[in-house]
Write a protein that binds this DNA or RNA. Structure first.
Lengths: 359, 359
DNA sequence: GTTAGCACTCTTTTCTTTCGAGTGCTAATT
DNA sequence: AATTAGCACTCGAAAGAAAAGAGTGCTAAC
């Protein structure tokens, strides 16, 4: 059943007012906010109708109305005017993301940025990937140590310094590196162990068992890429919100997301678009009066990750969605080839040596 | 003025009881806990004396006593019996630290471990280090890309994949790597820029300006090692404590440590020993009814870092100190050469670098 | 030096009362 | 038929009053 135009206006007014005030909204307030020109009594009968239809509820008989999750859902899907990001913020996002220098910390930094902009805790989920090693390189340092460098299929580089209690010479490393590049490249993690054993069996001219060391490192690297990793940050921002005044709730929520809870969020979803999970639509009991707004980004290599924020159902979905969407776009650009900011390498080769900008 | 034996026992009883209950302690409770065989009236006069001497205070006239920070200080320095870590926990610490595979994440993992064991938020501060590059290695991938691998003086390995919009050949990389290993090793970060400019001026046979790319990466790596980094985690565990029931306090504390506050802690200190900062001894206003217990660890290369927890002044200092001290020892062993855990190929591993990914 | 006894203080808890925001209904108005 | 004014009613929140309780400090006796 389609709601009348007036009901929609009233519902919007209730939602928007409640988002700001966190207090039940009464008929008078609706009139002020909506600009409609009727009497409170009229609005009251409309409110009663909206309540019967399941969009609003009353905490108790003599209070105003608050939106139900059905109400929020309608608001988010149809009523809300999508806000545009203002230029300052867009610029801030671009700048901050671009200045995150270490890829390991990029997701964490993006999360902190999301917290800063929305005042809600942020959550990032990196997509698991089945990678392979594209190239093995062994760097000889001295008779007891060498560095393993792996170039993975997503162009990440992993390395490890190995020091041994016995000595070897450079030619052994050369030989091994040839073997690895010939037989272990493009091999999936689960096929690597048998391959390694087989190779050891053949007695591949490796008296000290370096094959095992190198293969183990490769396996470990591929394995950790295969696990999706979540980062939760900014939990303290919840404490400012009235619905988390009683610290028990905040604690539950933070523990949930600091722990394994984040893994349970539905990772699949409309590519590129922002998804909003409202209250009971969420999976976990801990989240029943909490909403999650998630934006997905392209992590390159045909995988997608998620970045989102967690907050009370009463969230400014419109603003939050705009911000997250912009951050996710930035991440996509950074991770899937293009460069976000001119301070990265793309320009570096032209205006090279500009270390001032990077400081 | 030295306190009588009986006064010391009473003070200990008050502190220990208050640590558990978080409620002002009265004369009757002191008797129960201390096992002393006097009447409440006797204890009362002793309590009054301890209050006059500044070790205790009364929240209001008809309440029990709580320790002042002077009281805690005396307790921590002289009265407290140092607890030993029980075997299970020692083993847990050893195992957990040993299984932290990525060095970048070691400090964060150690912090989370501290939180888990103490139920207080943890704080790690890595010592800033003035490093140099020990070895440059350039790995040729294809005509447009190569990997820079740096071995730093603390044996950390850094790398970055560089992709260029024009092509070059392997011999150029060989030449450059020889130049860098000859002139840029052992050079401090601040001397590197002039050196690089000078080298560019000499026109060191580098038509595409790769020198700048490589040197910039080295500078950036050295610079980030020079900054001390802090990680704060486990803030949510504060919320269980009665003194942080009102969420404003918890919020202040968390914000302080999540932000720049941690930097202000006194990093210098008795090597290897555990330091306890009690309430007003702390620097910041935010910390005035908070204590910080800090253990320092040997980060190798003649630098020391800190790991600690933050909690209410009413903390079980003895247990907390034992745990932190053990964790710090573990970190020292891991970071300064020796290996903590014999698991897998761990024994062979000295240091493992992070991966850099080109955007 | 120690203790029993007791009046006193101040917080905490509980119960009442008051206040007010907001409702739902009915009857009048347009 | 939709809108509105009017009004009694509900129920939480705030304010006030009373009672309970924990613990003290003091005094006088042991």
């Amino acid at each position: 059943m389609e709601l009348s135009e007036r009901k929609k206006k009233i519902l919007s007014a209730v939602v928007e007012e409640y988002i700001i005030s966190a207090e039940p909204v009464g008929s008078k307030t609706v009139l002020e906010r909506s600009g409609l020109d009727f009497s409170p009594a009229t609005v009251r009968s409309e409110l009663a109708a909206l309540e019967k239809a399941g969009y609003l509820e009353q905490p108790h008989t003599s209070a105003g109305r608050i939106p139900t999750s059905k109400g929020y859902r309608l608001y988010v899907n149809e009523l809300m005017t999508k806000k545009k990001l203002d230029g300052d913020e867009a610029e801030l996002i671009t700048r901050e993301l671009g200045s995150s220098r270490e890829p390991e910390k990029l997701m964490g930094d993006a999360g902190r940025l999301a917290t800063e902009l929305t005042s809600y805790p942020a959550l990032t989920i990196t997509a698991p990937r089945a990678l392979t090693v594209k190239r093995f390189e062994l760097i000889y340092l001295d008779p007891n140590s060498f560095i393993i460098v792996l170039l993975l299929s997503d162009n990440a580089v992993k390395n490890k310094l190995v020091r041994l209690p016995f000595s070897f010479d450079e030619s052994l490393l050369k030989r091994l590196s040839a073997v690895f590049n010939a037989s272990f490249t493009g091999v999936a993690e689960e096929d690597m162990t048998p391959l390694m054993l087989e190779s050891a069996e053949r007695g591949a001219n490796d008296p000290m068992g370096l094959t095992g060391v190198i293969a183990s490192f490769a396996i470990e690297s591929l394995k950790s890429a295969r696990e999706s990793e979540t980062v939760f940050s900014g939990g303290e921002s919840l404490l400012k919100l009235p619905e988390f005044r009683d610290s028990g709730k905040a604690h539950k929520l933070m523990s949930y997301f600091s722990g394994e809870g984040a893994q349970k969020l539905p990772v699949a979803g409309a590519d590129g678009d922002v998804r909003v999970l409202i209250g009971p639509e969420n999976i976990a009991e801990e989240l029943k009066d909490t909403s999650v707004v998630l934006a997905s980004y392209d992590a390159g290599d045909n995988t997608r990750g998620l970045i989102g924020v967690v907050g009370p159902t009463r969230m400014d979905y419109s603003k939050v969605a705009a911000k997250l969407s912009y951050i996710a776009d930035g991440l996509s650009r950074l991770l899937s080839g293009g460069m976000l900011s001119p301070s990265g390498f793309g320009k570096l080769m032209i205006s090279e040596g500009d270390d001032k900008r990077e400081g």
